[in-house]
Structures are given as C-alpha cells and as structure tokens.
C-alpha cells in the first residue's frame, strides 16, 4: 500500500518546491506535493492549491500537511474544515518546523508509518534541538563495529534509509550512542567516510537490526566509495 502523503504549504512556491525536492531525495516513494504561493504565483497561500494537493497526495492512507507561517497555517486549517468527514479523519496538520519537520515526516512515511506517527515524527524534529535522547539499550544483546566506506558518509539519504528501516524493528538500537531510529540523530553524528560506527541493540529484534545496519554500511548504502 502506498505511503502516507505530504503536502508542503508555503507562502513561496519556490520554497515549497525546494522542501519537496529535499524530502524526495530521502523518501522516493512518498507522494510529496508542493502547494506554495497564491493562484497567480504571488507570495501567499492558496486554498485551492492545498485542496488539490491533498487530493493528489492522498493515496488512501492519509496526508500530513506541513505549513510555514501564520496565514499558511490558517489557510490549511480552513481547508481541513472544508473536507468531507471521511477524508478529514485521515488528513492532519503538523505543528512543526517546515524543513526539518517535512524531512522527518517523509522519512517516517517512507518507512511505512501511519498518519499519526508521521505527524509525530514531524513535530519532534526541531531546528537546532539536540537529537532525541537515545534509547536505553541497557546491556546490548547484539552489537557490531563497522566502518563507513562511502565517500559522502552518513548523510541525509543513508540516515533516512537506516532510521526508516530500523523503526520497523522491535529493538532499542544506538549508533555511537545516538538513537538509530531517528534520522535527525543519525545526521547529527556527522559521521564521514572512514568513521567507525559502534552499533548496539537490545530487544526481540536486536540481532536482525544490527545485521541490517552491518549490511547497509558494508554496501556503502549503494553509493560510491
């Protein structure tokens, strides 16, 4: 089933398109729709663009709306009020930072999260905030030490792949002490080519989670070395 979709609402058409471009790089299968600017291309927000965006982004599992400033939020809220009841139940407006929130939401959607979990991912991603507290791994039942082989290191795309896949496991897992199920926490590690990653996990899926990290890293996430 197709993932939860995202509609990015901004006063600026170019800003909305840019945020969509950034998120799409990390979440290729998520329906991402830019709804920026007014109908005639000026600065502002368009009720109709948002309405059409929801139509386009909703593949059945719902839509999360990301909005930038004051009246963009108001316009998005107004659209929600206009929706038919059955659809309104699966369209949510996130109270989140536009760029960080959209990226986090897209990653969550890519990993198969439901609409309420996608909103939560968006709202937990704050600009400049310290990454979420790492989970209590306790005594790891599974661990590995791997070295990053790819030229670009643990940048946005690999971080999204790891966090997205790992969030499907029932495991507490950290990489160099950071929450490995959080794309923001992984990116904040700023791990470059050659960096050693200490992977530790506990919980029912610990072995499988560590194996996934090892495989992904050893393949360099399919990127050039």
């Amino acid at each position: 089933m197709s993932p939860v979709g995202l509609v990015v609402v901004s006063h600026s058409a170019r800003l909305a398109e840019g945020v969509v471009e950034l998120a799409a790089q990390m979440a290729g299968s998520v329906p991402l729709v830019a709804a920026g600017g007014t109908d005639d291309g000026g600065l502002g927000t368009s009720f109709e663009k948002i309405m059409r965006g929801i139509d386009e982004a909703d593949q059945g599992r719902g839509v999360v709306i990301m909005a930038d400033l004051g009246s963009a939020v108001m316009t998005a809220e107004s659209v929600l009020e206009f929706l038919e009841d059955d659809r309104r139940a699966r369209v949510l407006l996130a109270d989140a930072a536009l760029v960080e929130g959209t990226v986090a939401a897209a990653v969550a959607a890519e990993s198969g999260a439901e609409v309420d979990a996608v909103v939560r991912a968006a709202e937990e991603a704050f600009p400049g905030a310290t990454p979420e507290e790492a989970p209590e791994v306790g005594e790891p039942t599974s661990s590995a030490v791997v070295t990053l082989p790819n030229r670009a290191g643990l940048h946005a795309r690999p971080a999204a792949i790891l966090a997205g896949r790992l969030s499907q496991f029932d495991a507490e897992i950290t990489i160099n002490g950071a929450d490995a199920q959080s794309v923001m926490a992984l990116m904040a590690l700023n791990a470059r080519k050659g960096a050693q990653l200490v992977v530790e996990a506990s919980g029912p899926d610990a072995d499988e989670a560590v194996r996934l990290v090892r495989e992904q890293v050893e393949h360099g996430f399919g990127e050039p070395a």
């Binding site: 007014t38 109908d39 000026g42 502002g44 927000t45 368009s46 009720f47 109709e48 004051g70 009246s71 108001m74 316009t75 809220e77 107004s78 659209v79 009020e81 206009f82």
Partner: peptide, 21 residues
C-alpha cells in the same frame, strides 16, 4: 466562503472564509 478563501490571500482569506463558512 469558498471564493474568499481562494482569492483573498493573506490572513483575511481564511478568516473571512471561515466566518462565511
């Protein structure tokens, strides 16, 4: 409501649009 929300732009659009809705 529909036309004001679509065409006004700025905060007055959703505010008056919601009022008429």
């Amino acid at each position: 409501a529909m036309m004001l929300m679509s065409k006004v732009g700025g905060a007055a659009g959703p505010l008056y649009g919601t009022a008429f809705l």
